[in-house]
Amino acid sequence: MISKQHTGILLFVTGLSVASVVQANEFEVTQKDKKFNHKALTVKVGDSVSFKNEDPFVHNIFSLSDIKTFDLGSYPQGQSKKVTFDKPGTVDIECAIHPEMKMTVEVKK
């Protein structure tokens, strides 16, 4: 049997979770003409960035930064892959196929 007090706490915690989900934003970064459309992007912890390939050849986005290490693999024109940033700090992002492509994502608390 759940008391009224416990129900209140449960609702409060649920409300906080819903609020945090609602607050997370999704950004889009495109790759076109072997360039990212942002040199730098600022997001908050919990936000996601979708990396969309708009070039007629593959890109391979990756990061070796300590706070977010990932490799999205190679993917062709029209496809996008998403990364969620769960820690604050600066993430350096590169393309494995086009070494001149670089950008940073600044993740704020």
Partner: peptide, 10 residues
């Protein structure tokens, strides 16, 4: 490995 990209177009 799928992480070895295709370089034919590059």
């Amino acid at each position: 490995s799928s992480f070895m990209p295709p370089w034919g177009n590059e």
